[in-house]
Amino acid sequence: LETFPLDVLVNTAAEDLPRGVDPSRKENYLSDEDFKAVFGMTRSAFANLPLWKQQNLKKEKGLF
């Protein structure tokens, strides 16, 4: 999966995202380093959170 810089994904409308980016899964296009910096946890820890908590975190970080 291709990764993009944080500033390309945060608070970006679906139509302005790079081609192929799923707007409902912007976090998947962050590098592992950016993911950890944004969410303060690994991808696996994030995946283990309840869906509502994942969505709330994504909203807080501008990735929803």
Rank of each mutant, 00 (worst) to 15 (best):
G62L: 05
W52F: 10
V8K: 09
S31M: 04
M41Q: 03
L1C: 14
S24F: 12
D22N: 08
N28H: 11
G40C: 09
P18Y: 01
F35H: 00
D34E: 09
L9V: 02
D22A: 04
N11S: 10
F4Q: 04
L49R: 00
T12I: 10
K36F: 15
F39S: 00
G40M: 08
A37W: 12
V38C: 11
M41E: 00
R19W: 08
L9G: 02
S24T: 15
A13V: 11
Y29E: 03
D16R: 09
A37C: 10
L17C: 06
A14F: 09
D22T: 04
S44C: 13
N11Q: 11
V21I: 11
P5D: 07
D7V: 10
T12R: 10
Q55S: 10
A37P: 00
Q54K: 07
E27Q: 04
P23A: 10
P23R: 06
F4M: 07
N11L: 07
W52R: 07
N48D: 14
F4I: 09
N11I: 06
D32M: 06
L6P: 07
K61L: 10
L1H: 14
D34T: 07
P18E: 04
L6K: 05
D34Q: 07
Q55K: 10
E15I: 11
K59N: 08
E60N: 07
K61M: 08
E27K: 02
N56W: 12
L51N: 09
F4K: 03
P18V: 03
G40N: 14
F4S: 03
L30S: 01
M41P: 00
L57C: 05
S31L: 03
L17R: 02
N56I: 13
V21S: 03
E27G: 02
L9N: 02
V21F: 07
E15T: 09
K59F: 10
V8H: 08
E33L: 10
V21W: 05
F39T: 01
N56V: 14
Q55R: 11
L1F: 15
T3P: 06
A47P: 00
D34C: 06
R25Q: 09
F46I: 00
K36R: 13
E15M: 06
T12K: 12
Q54E: 00
R43Y: 07
F64S: 15
K36L: 15
P5Y: 03
K58W: 04
F4W: 13
F64K: 07
K26T: 07
P23M: 06
